[in-house]
């Protein structure tokens, strides 16, 4: 069995593998920055101009120096933007967190409560209707919901903005600014919520259904505990585990998960940044984002592992369980 230290070591090792992969991966993309940037333009580069360009962009100094630079928090400079990659990531991150994190958190919490309640009313009309409704919703792809929402609320009704994260370059007070950000957030957030809520709901419900028949619930009931306490303090604990797992998993899609929605609503974020970087073969930026997202997932999983142990005392991941 692994100890805490061994466990951390395993994570570190994985992180190292990821750093290595992120170091190698972009290089496997066909094409290079100079071709992507200059080949399809009005500009015609002479051979020596091209050579000079390539030389200027040459940053590859082997894995060792890549690792050293990372350790110094020097994530390189974007070819296209000519600013540090870390700045770009840090500027895009709040938008991603707002949209993805917001949708994710809301979908999980709403899904948890609704799923638990539905399972509790197993077989009733409410359960049937809600499961039916959610199943239908689950079948609509984000592209579809996004465009339908856009069509109705932005195009036909004109109630909400058609794109962007905020009205740019206006002098707003804090309240106005917040309202403006929320107005821009509404449609993309709703799209993601509609896409993710059903999954959380169905998972919470299915997990709850699994424990409903178990004896410890009868014990709890026999002790005369109020139903809401039995439901949440005893039964729903078992739902938290898969929900937490799903929460962690979904964070893995933080960067690319909202790409379609970001594209439809021209919403800023890491997904768009990565997608454009791939198109432009902006290698330092690709590396940076891929690495950032991998490490973030790893970190979140590490946190979640310890959360599992708290959620379910029977799971002692690091200790000598059983």
């Amino acid at each position: 069995m692994l100890t805490w230290r061994g466990h951390l070591l395993a994570y570190l090792l994985t992180a190292l593998v990821m750093v290595y992969l992120s170091y190698r991966l972009p290089g496997w993309l066909p094409g290079d920055f100079v071709t992507a940037m200059y080949a399809d333009s009005h500009v015609v580069l002479g051979a020596e101009q091209e050579a000079a360009l390539r030389e200027r962009l040459q940053v590859d100094g082997g894995f060792g120096s890549y690792l050293l630079a990372l350790a110094r928090l020097d994530w390189g400079t974007s070819h296209a933007f000519r600013v540090p990659v870390s700045d770009l990531i840090l500027n895009a991150l709040p938008w991603t967190l707002l949209l993805m994190g917001g949708a994710h958190l809301l979908a999980t919490m709403l899904g948890f409560v609704a799923g638990v309640e539905a399972a509790w009313r197993r077989g009733g009309r409410i359960e049937r209707t809600s499961v039916g409704g959610m199943t239908v919703l689950q079948g609509v792809p984000e592209i579809g919901t996004g465009v339908l929402l856009l069509m109705v609320f932005a195009y036909h009704l004109g109630w909400l903005p058609a794109g962007g994260g905020a009205t740019l370059y206006v002098d707003h007070g804090f309240a106005e600014r917040a309202l403006d950000v929320l107005r821009h957030l509404a449609l993309p957030l709703a799209t993601l919520l509609l896409a993710w809520f059903p999954g959380n709901f169905l998972l919470a419900r299915a997990s709850m259904v699994l424990v409903l028949g178990q004896s410890f619930l009868d014990t709890a009931r026999a002790k005369g505990l109020p139903p809401i306490r039995v439901r949440y303090a005893h039964a729903a604990r078992n739902v938290l585990l898969p929900m937490a797992t799903r929460f962690g998993l979904r964070f893995a899609f933080m960067v690319t998960g909202a790409l379609v929605v970001e594209t439809i609503f021209s919403y800023p974020g890491l997904g768009t940044l990565l997608f454009n970087a791939i198109g432009a073969r902006d290698l330092p930026l690709i590396q940076g984002i891929v690495l950032f997202s991998s490490l973030a997932v790893l970190g979140i999983n590490l946190v979640l592992e310890s959360v599992y142990a708290r959620l379910d005392p029977r799971v002692r991941v690091y200790g000598r369980a059983l």
């Binding site: 990821m18 991966l25 993309l29």
Partner: peptide, 14 residues
Amino acid sequence: DLLLAIPAVMILIL
């Protein structure tokens, strides 16, 4: 974790 953290879209583009 490793697989999850690598954007699938990128691998598929490749």
